[in-house]
Design a protein around this nucleic acid. Structure first.
Lengths: 201, 201
DNA sequence: AACATGCGTACGTGATAACGTACGCCCGCC
DNA sequence: GGCGGGCGTACGTTATCACGTACGCATGTT
C-alpha cells in the first residue's frame, strides 16, 4: 500500500551520479582507473554515474575513497546560482550580541549557500559572547577564522588558543566557543568562515 | 596533482547502524514508527541498525528523511580533528601561477574540510592567471572573495565586476574566472573562500 | 590499411538488499 | 490467568545491486 507517510520528509534521493562523473573526470581518471582505486567495478561505476542504480553505502564509501573524499563530502549536494556582490556599505550588520562586538555578513543570503563569511570587530577586552550564551553553530559545521588586525584569543570547548595577526584557525563550530580580544587597548578584527552541511526545516 | 598510488585509500565503511538506532530512540520512535515515516520496512531498519546489511543510498536517504535529517547529516561521521591552527609563518605558500600573484592557504589540509580559505596578493596590473589557464574549481563549488586592500576586479564567465576595499562577492567557482588588480600602482589583497558542492551541469 | 590500445556501455550470473509475513517476548489490563 | 497490543527479530520471496566478460567505438601505432 503506497500510503502517504504520516509526518515524513519528502525523501529526495540524491543524484550523486553526475557528481561522481565530474569528480572522476576532474581527476583525469577513467572508469577502470577509478575502479582500480576504489575496488568498485567499472560497469558499476558507470551505472552509478548514470543513475541506473543506487549504490550501497559500502560501495558509495569505496567510490568516495577512490576519489579521495569522505562519503559525506561526496554526498554534499544542493543548488546555487550566479553571482552576488555585497557592497561594503550595504552589508547586513549583525545584531550587537555583546558589547564591544560588531560583525557584518559578507556572503549573500542566498539559498544553497554553503559557507557564511563574516567580518568581526572586537573592542579591547571584549568577546563575541558571554559564557551564558554559547553561539555554537549547526551540528557538523566547521569554522575558519583569520586574524586580520590585533591579537585574538579563541576559546573552543574550554581550551584557549591565541592568534597573532595573520594567523588562521579551523575548528568544529558545533562546539561551544567564543573569541576574545585580550589586549588592553586597540581593536581586533577577524574574518570568520562557517561552512555547514545541509539544513532541513 | 600527483596521482601516485593505485590503491590509495583503505575505504572504511561507516557504521551508521548505532547512529540510526540512537537517533530513532532519541525521537521516541519504534521501528514501525520510523518505518511509517521513512517508507522503509521495519525489518530493514532493524538490519541496518545492527549492521547486518549496508543500505542503498536511496534507502539511507529515506531513513535520514524519517529522522528529519539530510543524508549528509546522518552520515556525518567525520572523525573530529576539532581544531587546527595555521600560523602566519608556516603557511603553505601557493605556487606562483602567474607573475605578480601570490597566495597562501589558510585552512588546514585536513580531510573533511568543506571550505578552503586562502589569502591572495596581486601586484599592480597583474591577475590571478592568464586566460589560457582558467583556474576553475571543482564543479559545483562556490567562491566568496573579500577585498581587503586596494581595488580588485573579478572577471567571471566573461563579465567584469569591480570591487572596492571591503566589498565581497560570491559566485560559482566552476565557471572560468580570474581576479585582476586594475590599479597602476599599489598592491591588492583579498581573501578567497572556496566551498565545494554540487551543481547540475 | 590493419592492428593494437583504451574508452564507456550492454549482457548474463551470483550475491544480497528490501520487502511482507509471522514468531517469541514483555507489558498493561479487563 | 488469559488477552490484546506493542516491541524487536527470524523467515522466505522478490527485486536489484554488483561482478566478470564481451561488444562497439573512437584513438594512435608499424
Amino acid at each position: 500500500m503506497a500510503l502517504a507517510p504520516p509526518v515524513p520528509t519528502p525523501a529526495e534521493v540524491p543524484e550523486v551520479g553526475p557528481r561522481v562523473r565530474a569528480l572522476r573526470e576532474h581527476m583525469g581518471l577513467s572508469l577502470r582507473g577509478l575502479a582500480d582505486r576504489s575496488g568498485v567495478s567499472a560497469p558499476m561505476l558507470s551505472q552509478v554515474e548514470r543513475g541506473d542504480t543506487s549504490p550501497t553505502l559500502a560501495v558509495a564509501t569505496r567510490i568516495a575513497a577512490g576519489l579521495e573524499l569522505s562519503l559525506s563530502q561526496l554526498l554534499r549536494l544542493d543548488e546555487g546560482d550566479t553571482l552576488a556582490v555585497v557592497r561594503a556599505d550595504e552589508r547586513r550588520r549583525g545584531g550587537a550580541v555583546s558589547r564591544g562586538h560588531g560583525y557584518e555578513v559578507l556572503s549573500p543570503p542566498l539559498p544553497g549557500q554553503r559557507a557564511e563569511v563574516s567580518m568581526h570587530t572586537l573592542a579591547a577586552g571584549s568577546g563575541t559572547s558571554g559564557p551564558g550564551d554559547p553561539p555554537r553553530h549547526e551540528p557538523g559545521s566547521r569554522e575558519t577564522a583569520v586574524a586580520l588586525r590585533g591579537r585574538l584569543r579563541l576559546v573552543c570547548d574550554g581550551t584557549a588558543c591565541d592568534l597573532e595577526e595573520g594567523d588562521a584557525v579551523t575548528f568544529d563550530a558545533d562546539l561551544p566557543h567564543h573569541f576574545e580580544n585580550p589586549a588592553s587597548e586597540g581593536e581586533a578584527r577577524f574574518l570568520a568562515v562557517v561552512a555547514a552541511g545541509l539544513r532541513r526545516s
